[in-house]
């Protein structure tokens, strides 16, 4: 399979801040690739560079074999962009918008087919401004597909959707993928990435902190166990408690969390230590780690 996107050492700085801080990845043709991360992680900046909307500060980017910053008309003829921040002319009807924007592409999907695809048949002649937010996002999606693109960028395609609309959009995206299109999507929903993507790159503060298939992310991070408890007031150092542990220790206030792949021996050490110091550990919990925890840990706390 050929490579659709190749990114090497991509950096984008705004003044002092590094929005994208040296990331590398590649996307194969026909693959669904998700860039997952919290707001401000650099997802949109990365995708905007791939689309040719922004120039990188440093690094190499090749999209469909073209440098997107110099791609021009022939490049944009081959991609479809569904951009969170791109508006639609409110005073035009759904059909008019698709006709006007579609006219510039060398090959295009018929307007009626698109309207059916995004299930807006009854709204086809209504003005975009009268549609609900979710319906407008579907027009957005139809506009991204109007040029029958080889590569589709979806920027947070279901943000703000109710669960039903979200599920329908997922079905639609799965549909596109079955047509052999390459899809790059950004999302801050872990379940969305897990449901749709062949591969996921987790972005945090401009860096890729994990990359792989949803299953491999789960197995490499998610097979562990979290031991947590409230630490009682103790005199002196905790090093005799914490140092021998095999797992990774995190603390918030007096709550200690240990993410470990050897829960039995770590738990034995902790309880032995507590008994020896004649302490009771409040709210002691042992739980298997789920992917959400892994994700939150990777991106550094709350999203």
């Amino acid at each position: 399979m050929a490579t659709a996107i190749e990114v090497r050492g991509l950096v984008k700085t705004y003044g002092e801040s590094r929005a994208v801080d040296g990331i590398s990845f590649s996307v194969e043709e026909g693959e669904v690739f998700a860039i997952l991360g919290p707001n401000g992680a650099g997802k949109s900046t990365t995708v905007e560079i791939l689309e040719g909307h922004r120039d990188p500060t440093d690094g190499e980017v090749s999209v469909l074999g073209i440098d997107p910053s110099r791609g021009g008309r022939s490049f944009r003829d081959r991609i479809g962009i569904v951009l969170q921040s791109a508006g639609i002319d409110r005073e035009l009807s759904v059909r008019e918008v698709l006709d006007f924007y579609g006219a510039a592409y060398s090959s295009r999907r018929p307007t009626d087919e698109l309207i059916e695809l995004v299930e807006l048949g009854e709204k086809a002649d209504d003005r975009v401004g009268t549609l609900s937010g979710g319906q407008q996002r579907r027009v957005d999606l139809a506009l991204g597909l109007v040029g029958d693109p080889e590569l589709i960028f979806l920027d947070e395609p279901t943000t703000g959707f109710d669960p039903g609309a979200r599920r329908r959009s997922w079905d639609l995206i799965t549909n596109l993928r079955s047509l052999g299109r390459t899809i790059v999507l950004t999302t801050h929903y872990l379940d969305e990435a897990e449901h749709l993507a062949d591969r996921v790159a987790v972005l945090s503060e401009g860096r890729i902190v994990a990359e792989g298939s949803p299953a491999s992310l789960r197995s490499s991070f998610g097979s562990g166990t979290t031991i947590s408890f409230d630490l009682p007031a103790v005199d002196g150092s905790l090093s005799d408690l914490l140092d021998p542990l095999t797992g990774e220790v995190r603390g918030r206030d007096r709550r200690i969390e240990i993410l470990t792949s050897s829960p039995t021996s770590d738990l034995a050490h902790i309880t032995t230590w507590a008994v020896a110091h004649d302490l009771e550990l409040g709210s002691l919990q042992v739980a298997s780690t789920d992917l959400e925890d892994v994700y939150l840990q990777l991106v550094g706390g709350d999203t």
Partner: peptide
């Protein structure tokens, strides 16, 4: 107005030449 609404940005993402 169209720039503020992101419509111009959408146009720039299509093969329509800006001058058109």
């Amino acid at each position: 107005t169209r720039r503020e609404e992101g419509i111009l940005r959408r146009v720039r993402g299509t093969p329509l030449p800006p001058w058109v």
